[in-house]
Nucleic acid binder design. Sequence first.
DNA 1: GTTAGTTACATGCAAATGCATATAATCGGC
DNA 2: GCCGATTATATGCATTTGCATGTAACTAAC
Lengths: 156, 156
Amino acid sequence: MTATAPAAAPARARSHLANDAWEATMAAHATLMRRFAAEDLWSDVSMREYDVLYTLSKCDEPQRLSELGRHVLLSQPALSRLVDRLVERGLVARCADPSDARAAHLTLTPTGRDLQRRIGRRHGASVARAMTAALTEEELTLLESLTHKLSQEHRS
Amino acid sequence: MTATAPAAAPARARSHLANDAWEATMAAHATLMRRFAAEDLWSDVSMREYDVLYTLSKCDEPQRLSELGRHVLLSQPALSRLVDRLVERGLVARCADPSDARAAHLTLTPTGRDLQRRIGRRHGASVARAMTAALTEEELTLLESLTHKLSQEHRS
DNA sequence: GTTAGTTACATGCAAATGCATATAATCGGC
DNA sequence: GCCGATTATATGCATTTGCATGTAACTAAC
């Protein structure tokens, strides 16, 4: 509802705009992911594995597998086995939940935390370079706010 | 450079903002991808296959495999075989390029075009629903503009 | 025109993924 | 406390993916 547009914009225009915005968002995601993947950083852990290490590094509480699943775009079995591999490699530890024997609580091991920090420093710098090269601070703030709204769950 | 912030913001704050914006963007991408994947639309083609059909539907000219690769987040061999499957299923056709015998030009077959349109209608509506539920028209325009800037290639 | 280098795409093979399903634990009536 | 329903995670198996490499075609320098 801008001042220059009629209050009741045709639903088709609105829908088209929404699709264009989503397409541009996907394109940006793909472009940047490719750029980050091209950095010489992923010999020890893949980007997906790093994603898990990073997610675990953010929370002091041990995380459930299903909780991790909300942050990682991967099926539950795939995540389960990705974690298996991280545990085998000594980067992540499974510990039992006393109140729920089904749950497998996950934490970073000291080794895992070190590795996450080491890669995170370099990757973070790379992300900052790419983002600040394209957008001003104001724009970054705006982008964060808009995308944050998008990831809010909602009824339908 | 807002009125309230010093002109020379510390590099760390700037970098942190950039990383937050990227993280929010990835989270939005993951949330929406999951929501779209959950729609009952992907029995005939997977989302990745649809992505290829959609990309082909947008250009009248036959596309090269490598050109497709720029739009799809997939390795070259994986894309090559994904296209193989679409060709086998009669949705995509390979035609030779007279000026370059290496290139495999790709087009939608009539069947492929029909399928893309049929799924595209429903998926597009779903995308519109999710996006307009979260953002106003102004915000959608803004998001498109910001993410468009992000996908511009740039030197480093 | 030959040859080295590059580009476009394909293929062998091991690893990762998703789907369906299994297993095990918790929850909610009764 | 018992039993069906649900939740949390794991596993079997076919498919898909990526990495390394192969093959064929184009390009450019000589």
